[in-house]
């Protein structure tokens, strides 16, 4: 066989756009499009987008750690997918927020200090075992699904558009979390025990998700007041636990003030890891 034959066979494929790694398929809204679009958010709208973006970013950072460590390869893929979706949402919200200060998504992700982040404590919680990650996913995916559904009506067009893409993906995240909650809740004695433990250690951080801030009132129908999601969240979450023969924890809520920049002790480590390389090379592009 000659080198020519090999050349020929190498040329006979090469539709590199067919890859599953196309980050944004079709003509959906991409973070790059948001960055160059005309509309610039007010600082208040940007503050709101930061909250949405930071939750998604920190959760993506946490979840991505599962890739190559899952209980089966299918879960490496599933959790990787969810992480990738969350990262996509984060990039869109941060790209939008960044414009208010003439910055970029990377300026916000890599160059803000811990107290400038607006993430909730629940997304900062360690992955723990697979059960802890699933309970965290159940808590957040039901929440985000309700939130993005409500934000479809946001009077801010960009936030509504990002939410429209996100809500479809989060719907799948919710299905994934519910399916595993049932399997683990009803599976074995051991899995049920681990799920009860996971519920107990995460429950303290549920309260913070529903706390309203002045910002929500000030923004009117741009934003969704978190407290307005509480009843629907309770109903859905309780129903899943009931099906899984698990009980609502009785542990109290913690004082968690991530929205004010007062974070759990975990966030410092998350950021140290996430930002280390970028900060070693100020001004560099990648």
């Amino acid at each position: 066989m000659s080198a020519h034959d090999i050349d020929h066979s190498l040329d006979s494929f090469g539709d590199s756009t067919a890859s599953a790694t196309r980050v944004t398929p079709g003509n959906a809204l991409r973070p790059e499009d948001i960055a160059i679009a005309q509309d610039k958010p007010s600082e208040q709208v940007a503050e709101y987008a930061l909250r949405l973006g930071d939750d998604a970013l920190i959760l993506a950072q946490r979840l991505s750690h599962w890739i190559s460590r899952g209980p089966e390869i299918e879960e490496d893929i599933a959790l990787g997918n969810i992480a990738l979706d969350q990262l996509g949402h984060a990039r869109s919200f941060l790209s939008y927020a960044a414009k208010a200060w003439d910055k970029t998504e990377d300026d916000l992700a890599y160059w803000r200090e811990e107290e400038e982040f607006r993430s909730l404590h629940i997304v900062e919680q360690p992955n723990g075992d697979f059960g802890v990650t699933i309970v965290r996913q159940l808590i957040i995916s039901i929440y985000q699904h309700l939130l993005y559904t409500a934000l479809l009506e946001s009077s801010d067009e960009t936030i509504a558009a990002i939410s429209a893409k996100a809500v479809k993906e989060v719907d799948y995240h919710r299905d994934h979390a519910i399916a595993w909650t049932l399997r683990l809740g009803l599976g074995t004695e051991e899995s049920a025990r681990r799920m009860r433990h996971a519920l107990d250690i995460l429950w303290p951080y549920v309260g913070e998700m529903f706390e309203d801030e002045e910002l929500h009132t000030a923004l009117g129908d741009v934003a969704v007041a978190p407290s307005s999601l509480r009843a629907a969240w309770d109903e859905e979450f309780t129903a899943v636990l009931k099906d899984a023969e698990l009980e609502l924890p009785t542990v109290p809520f913690a004082m968690a003030r991530g929205r004010r920049g007062e974070h759990s002790e975990h966030l410092g480590f998350i950021l140290a890891e996430m930002q280390v390389l970028a900060r070693k090379h100020p001004g560099a592009t990648w």
């Binding site: 599953a20 790694t21 890891e273 996430m274 970028a278």
Partner: peptide, 22 residues
Amino acid sequence: ITRAPSLKRKAILMAKVQDEAG
């Protein structure tokens, strides 16, 4: 993945490693 120096690179790398699992 957790240290990728830009969010875009992080997304591409994550997708790539996930492809390998596939």
